[in-house]
Design a protein around this nucleic acid. Structure first.
Length: 273
DNA sequence: AATAGTGGCAACCGCCCCTAA
DNA sequence: TTTAGGGGCGGTTGCCACTAT
């Protein structure tokens, strides 16, 4: 167990919480409500910082938490939709999901993101040696004379990555949905950018996969535009039409349904054989 | 059976905002 | 008006368990 001496000479305890500590914390909340976190240490109840106490309460001890319960498909879909709407505002997203904390949502998203990046890495590095180590995520996207991103060229750019033919449609879909904001010219306003939407119509002409039950199911579920939640902010929390925050390229797989992720993984892993 | 890869999770860190003095 | 402290929040890290090779 890590202990750290503070300037005032008192020790701060870090690391996993014990049942005894939890009990002290619960008693504090019973008496005072979920506030005055820093007083827990100043009164000598626990050698923990106020922040640590608050975090423990919010993430583990608070009533009605769905601790140890995996995200349902419905919850996954909600997170994806809300993340597309709010960006990485985990606390805000968690407020829509009963029994889930911002940490839960953040961890779920982080796992999903890692998985997505691994799939993309596989899909690009499994082909020609010249593409080894190239990632779709960091690819340079074509921009026209006015500095606008050229979407048809964007899709064509995918071909430079020498992806297997049967993977092209899926990867084109991901490409359009994962354009890093840092690749856009700074003067570009949001209204000029392609809005992240899951358009699966291209699948209908693809003979390799248009009979696939998973794809048919996807078309059924996501063929129509996902209804807005009645909020007017975009993924970066800006009002529509305002300049986009270019510092956080986080929207590259917005609205990418879990089923699609599963399906992509099967494609990339089968291409490795 | 051993090892590497991955997912899931808990907890800390650092930044920012708010508020009271 | 300024400033310090508390709290909220997003990012990150590290650990453990499980699974595939």
């Amino acid at each position: 167990m890590a202990r750290q001496k503070q300037n005032d000479g008192a020790y701060i305890r870090k690391g996993p919480w014990t049942a005894e500590e939890d009990e002290v914390l619960i008693n504090h909340v019973k008496r005072n409500g979920p506030r005055d976190w820093s007083s827990i240490r100043s009164k000598g109840l626990l050698p923990r910082t106020g922040k640590s106490c608050r975090l423990r309460w919010v993430n583990k001890l608070r009533p009605n938490l769905k601790t140890g319960c995996k995200f349902s498909a419905e919850e996954e879909r909600m997170v994806i939709q809300l993340q597309a709407q709010f960006g990485n505002k985990w606390a805000k997203i968690a407020a829509y999901l009963q029994g889930r904390t911002d940490n839960d949502v953040k961890n779920f998203w982080s796992t999903r993101r890692k998985r997505f990046e691994r799939i993309l890495q596989k899909s690009t590095s499994s082909n020609s040696p010249k593409n080894k180590g190239k990632s779709l995520v960091h690819h340079e996207f074509p921009v026209d004379k006015l500095g606008m991103v050229d979407l048809p060229d964007l899709v064509k750019a995918n071909q430079l990555l020498n992806v297997e033919a049967e993977q092209q449609p899926m990867l084109e879909a991901t490409l359009i949905n994962m354009i890093p904001s840092s690749d856009f010219p700074p003067h570009l306003s949001l209204s000029q950018l392609p809005q992240p939407q899951l358009d699966l119509s291209f699948l209908s002409g693809c003979k390799e996969i248009d009979q696939d039950p998973i794809v048919l199911n996807l078309l059924d579920m996501f063929g129509e535009e996902i209804p807005p939640l009645g909020l007017e902010e975009n993924a970066q929390g800006n009002k529509l039409g305002e300049l986009k925050d270019l510092s956080t390229p986080d929207i590259f797989f917005d609205e990418f349904p879990p089923e699609m992720l599963d399906y992509l993984e099967t494609l990339t892993s089968s291409s490795e054989l």
